[in-house]
Amino acid sequence: MNLLTISGSPHVHNDQSVKKIMFGVIISLIPAMLVSFYFFGLPSIILTLTAVISCALFEFLIQKYLLHTEPSVTDGSAMLTGLLLAFNVPSNLPIWMMIVGSLVAIGIGKMSFGGLGKNPFNPALVGRVFLLISFPVDMTSWPLPQNFTTSLTDVVTGPTPLGIVKEGLKKGDAMADLMTQVPDYVNLLLGNMGGSIGEVSALAIIIGGLYMLVKKIISWHIPVAFIGSVLVFAAILNLVNPALYVNPLFHLVTGGLMLGAIYMATDMVTSPMSALSMIIYGVGCGILTVLIRVFGAYPEGVSFAILIMNALTPILNKYIKPKRFGEVVAA
């Protein structure tokens, strides 16, 4: 006869688990993955696999031999970090840099704080920013998309559309001329442009984001606030001086904005908890992104914007509380 179990209520649980959430996110990344494999070919596949495997391996080794805890690598969170990290680098990055980046992302970005759920900053972004600052040349020589290539060496590199515009404006070129140098909006939306592996196709990422929304993995607050504030802020600048500031739609479909808004900023661990603070966080990300893109040294600002807002998350959590039931509203 088996003994009865005693526990406090509730005695049922919905069928969600960390593993399901993580693999849900991974599934939603498939469209973006396929698009980048198509445009960037075999090198991007190898790089992505390298990142995923090394992130998982580093987490396993650190948990097993350094922290002496039960490895939890099967929950998929390390693989997801690897995937997102790979999506944030150009496809011709040397393999060893990818491995170092993975070590930084997992080792410093995640495990040094105590592992899953304890890290203040998005680990994939920590890895990416580390690589960007350490190896700026390799991190900013973007291979131009070719229809599926298996060649590992023969790539043509060129600047990203954001880079073209930024450099051009600095030189004093006219906005209208610059816009002819960058791909048209359809290609930008599909991802036919230079850039990091996973960030190029806004459309594929939006599809993934909708999947996550339907599956209730993420809520709409952060992506909508992020993208919306970029749109509004860029539109204001554009209205002030169209010759100096680019069309807001251009901001939306270029660079890592979609990837950042839908995948990096919505990382549960590093984003705030209540609806209002999520919106503030998203708006903060959006404004910082535009500020860095337009006035900063880098053509791209999404990573930095998100990391800065990550740092503000604990403060948002502390001071913005959900509306308590029965709270007396001052009349």
Partner: peptide, 8 residues
């Protein structure tokens, strides 16, 4: 001896 098991 235990007659029930606590899970909590």
């Amino acid at each position: 001896p235990a007659k029930v098991v606590l899970d909590g």
